[in-house]
Write a protein that binds this DNA or RNA. Structure first.
Length: 350
DNA sequence: AAAGCGGGGAG
DNA sequence: CTCCCAGCTTT
């Protein structure tokens, strides 16, 4: 017995709703323009999709405009130094995306003549493009009739089918159930379903009375749309503790260095810190001098909570040669993740 | 199959 | 505070 009942999806109703209520987004071709023959630029769609991985539309907008202004084409991005891409990505999170973005731009230019492949299967072989992103680009740019399954669709379909297990355990079944319902306007359909999930069938609010899928929705029929999707048991978030050291030279420049190329915040810029452990420990200062305690920074990562004690001191620069000294006015342009911007702010560098 | 990987906004 | 967002890669 399948976990997903073969309840048909009224794609026509979804598209009719989308024609009236589509969100206006910087990377999107409106359904009216699309109907008039305007096609999306695969470069812009790809860039937006990568930025939108596990990231809200609101957070992406300014980054998208900044990136497309600096680098209007895949050729421009492929030619840009990786350092510049990381600096512009700083604050958006999941920094492996920026490295893969750059690698993907170079692959498209060097292996495909600057033209994005037009099938989901071919797109999926590129760096940073997985099952969702390949399907989204193929549908939105080329109207490939492929199932586009993101977090919104997980929720919408889990409710529509009243899925009795966590989505994780039925992903293939959901995809198959969606696939057989994908219409000719597959790009608009994909975006319509995502808009539906973002506005009507939202995580904490289900506005079933105005939903185009209301009549076929099992969860709505049961009167408990918010009971789905079934939540998997969540792991506790451990606490790690450590110390951060903000050092300035006599001229007031701040000592920065580059993080390791693998792991958390890989390749991004930081100030020196101790190890982050489960236990509070005494600060192992980088150099013996008069350190001033500037308070604490708390930062939440996906899988742990970090509490850093912030220390500052004026030091002799000769002892530090792995990194560089950055004038306070230049900090804004450094590839500093949010954690270290918090640390610097705590030490008085705004 | 599970873990690792950021950050922010909504409620 | 918790939840979760237009997920991908590595182990």
């Amino acid at each position: 017995m399948s976990l997903v009942s073969p309840q048909p999806i009224d794609a026509g109703a979804v598209l009719a709703w989308y024609d009236r209520h589509a969100r206006d987004l910087p990377w999107r071709i409106s359904p009216a323009a699309r109907s008039a023959g305007v096609m999306p630029d695969p470069y812009r769609v790809w860039l937006s999709e990568v930025m939108l991985q596990q990231t809200t539309v609101a957070a992406v907008k300014t980054y998208f405009i900044r990136f497309t202004t600096l680098w209007p084409s895949v050729f421009d991005l492929a030619t840009a130094p990786l350092d510049a891409v990381l600096r512009e990505w700083a604050g958006l999170g999941y920094y492996a995306r920026a490295r893969n973005l750059h690698a993907c731009a170079r692959a498209v230019v060097e292996q495909h003549g600057g033209v994005f492949p037009q099938s989901a299967a071919a797109l999926a072989s590129l760096p940073g493009i997985g099952a969702y992103t390949s399907a989204a680009i193929a549908a939105i740019c080329f109207d490939e009739r492929v199932a586009v399954l993101d977090g919104n669709l997980d929720r919408v379909l889990a409710r529509y089918f009243a899925l009795s297990v966590p989505v994780r355990e039925a992903k293939d079944g959901l995809r198959a159930a969606l696939q057989v319902n994908v219409p000719n306007r597959s790009g608009d359909f994909a975006q319509a379903m995502m808009d539906l999930g973002a506005t009507i069938c939202a995580p904490r609010v289900a506005s079933c009375l105005i939903c185009p899928l209301h009549s076929g929705c099992r969860a709505s029929q049961q009167g408990e749309p918010l009971a789905y999707p079934i939540k998997p048991v969540k792991a506790a978030r451990p606490v790690r503790r450590g110390h951060a050291f903000v050092m300035t030279d006599a001229g007031g420049d701040v000592y920065l260095q580059t993080r390791p190329g693998k792991g958390l915040l890989a390749g991004m810029t930081e100030v020196p810190t101790s190890d982050w452990t489960g236990e509070a420990n005494d600060p192992a200062y980088p150099v013996a001098t008069e350190w001033r305690h500037r308070g604490q920074v708390i930062h939440i990562f996906t899988h742990f909570r970090l509490e850093l004690e912030v220390w500052s001191a004026v030091v002799a620069p000769e002892s530090f040669d792995e990194g560089w000294w950055s004038p306070p006015g230049a900090l804004k342009g450094e590839a500093l993740p949010t954690l270290f911007r918090k640390v610097l702010a705590q030490a008085g560098f705004d």
